[in-house]
Design a binder for these strands. Structure first.
Length: 371
RNA sequence: GGACGGGUGGGUGAGUGGCUAAAACCAGCAGACUGUAAAUCUGCCGCUCCUUGCGGGCUACGGAGGUUCGAAUCCUCCCCCGUCCA
């Protein structure tokens, strides 16, 4: 049995402490997964990521298909070997690009036609094609192609996308059954449904009937208020089987992550720590800090005096501000390192709190610190 | 001494009669970022007043005068900078 998901403990809030075993290693949940779209987490070496304690990273089907091409990666020994990352990888299907590249694509029942953002060439991504690519890449966790829509959307629009996502999920499951290897890769279905509670529930139920080894909740945190995100997450999660991992896609801010974990979410990914780092926004135990601000010009303190990361152990705010304003590469590297450490350490603290059954007090401490 | 060219808001630099508190870029100040077309994007950026509004007043395109209803823009003189000629 190459894959195994165990719920080790549950917290009174509903949070779960778990362990997902894959052929490339164990993922302790709740887990945060750094995003490495183009087979690289921007600004960090693989060695850095290992030292930070990243147990799994994301990569993107659409981007790697366009460049360098999934066949090339297969010939290079698969994505793990190609990028020299020995730990688990989750590949997103390109479903998010249906949303984010909306100007460049056309969705039909059969699949999605994209105009490449790189050279304008036209490409067709179907549920089967996405899986063909992901199988070639050899990621541990494989996402089905879904249709992600903006929120708020018209009810009819949300129903259409959720229905199509379910149809695509069925096709994906069937394709994987004949072309995939369940001992090598784990296929996750995705719940859509916009901001409609009932649609979220029925979508989740329909997906569960297809019996996926793991389930994702997608199409959230794309503009709707946080309480709505929580409500939709709860609606979907309440229908998902307790013995399968739950992945809330594309979230979130630290304080929000705590809410999602309390709703029984096991896995999350987000570009926030990496992108914010490149934009000079650093996460600290006291909230966010914009390192370019004038107030840090002569500040000898580390980013966060409660942080044990390599950057906080060595560099001052004044120096990091200087690097950022000078446009130096090192600013990207150090800022990203700190933010990822913050997120990964935050998850370690959450897991510990669940283990000791005091997630609720962990949350009130956090809220007090953030004011 | 002469011939050209030029002096614009913190910087570079557009603007050759009203649409100009003055383009654009940079610098500066602040904010955003949620399955990465993002080391990006947005706002502010002369002073001042208030009932914060496509609001009022003041100051501003080397200096001083002039032409004009109106001048960064036209005229006169002066000062300064650059290149070339003596």
């Amino acid at each position: 049995m190459s894959f195994r998901f165990e719920v080790l403990q549950t917290d009174p809030t509903g949070a779960r402490l778990g362990r997902l075993t894959t052929p490339h290693g164990v993922i302790e949940t709740p887990a945060f997964m750094p995003v490495g779209t183009q087979a690289t987490v921007k600004g960090q070496t693989q060695q850095n990521l290992e030292e930070l304690g990243a147990q799994i990273i994301l990569a993107n089907t659409y981007h790697l298909y366009l460049r360098p091409g999934h066949e090339l990666i297969r010939r290079m020994g698969g994505l793990h070997q190609f990028m020299s990352w020995p730990r688990p990888i989750l590949t997103d299907s390109g479903g998010f690009q249906v949303f984010s590249l909306s100007e460049l694509r056309k969705v039909s029942e059969d699949g999605v036609t994209f105009r490449s953002h790189l050279d304008g060439s036209e490409h067709f991504l179907s549920p089967e094609k996405a899986l063909e690519i992901e199988i070639a890449l050899g990621s541990d966790i494989v996402m089905v192609l879904d249709e992600c829509i903006e929120t708020p959307s018209q009810d009819a629009r949300a129903r259409e996308a959720a229905g199509r996502t379910l149809a695509w999920a069925r096709r994906s499951r069937d394709y994987f059954a004949t072309h995939g290897d369940p001992g090598r890769q784990m296929l996750f279905g995705i719940v859509q449904g916009g901001t409609d509670r009932d649609l979220r529930r029925t979508s989740a139920q329909a997906l569960v009937d297809m019996d996926f080894p793991g389930y994702a909740i997608g199409g959230l945190a794309v503009g709707e208020p946080h309480p709505v995100t929580c409500e939709m997450t709860e609606a979907a999660a309440s229908r998902l089987p307790a013995d399968r991992p739950r992945y809330l896609m594309g979230v979130g801010k630290p304080e929000q992550i705590l809410d999602y974990v309390s709703l029984g979410v096991d896995m999350m990914d987000c570009v926030l720590p990496t992108r914010s780092a490149r934009h000079g926004c650093l996460f600290t135990s006291h909230g966010r800090l914009l390192i370019r601000n004038a107030q840090y010009a002569e500040d000898p303190r580390p980013i966060d005096d409660n942080c044990a990361c390599a950057v906080c152990r060595r560099y001052s705010r004044a120096y990091l501000r200087h690097l950022y304003r000078s446009g130096e590469f090192l600013a990207v590297i150090l800022n990203t390192h700190h933010n990822l450490y913050f997120y990964l350490d935050f998850m370690r603290q959450i897991r510990k709190a669940i283990e000791f059954g005091n997630l609720e007090s962990f949350r009130s401490d956090l809220q007090a610190r953030l004011g």
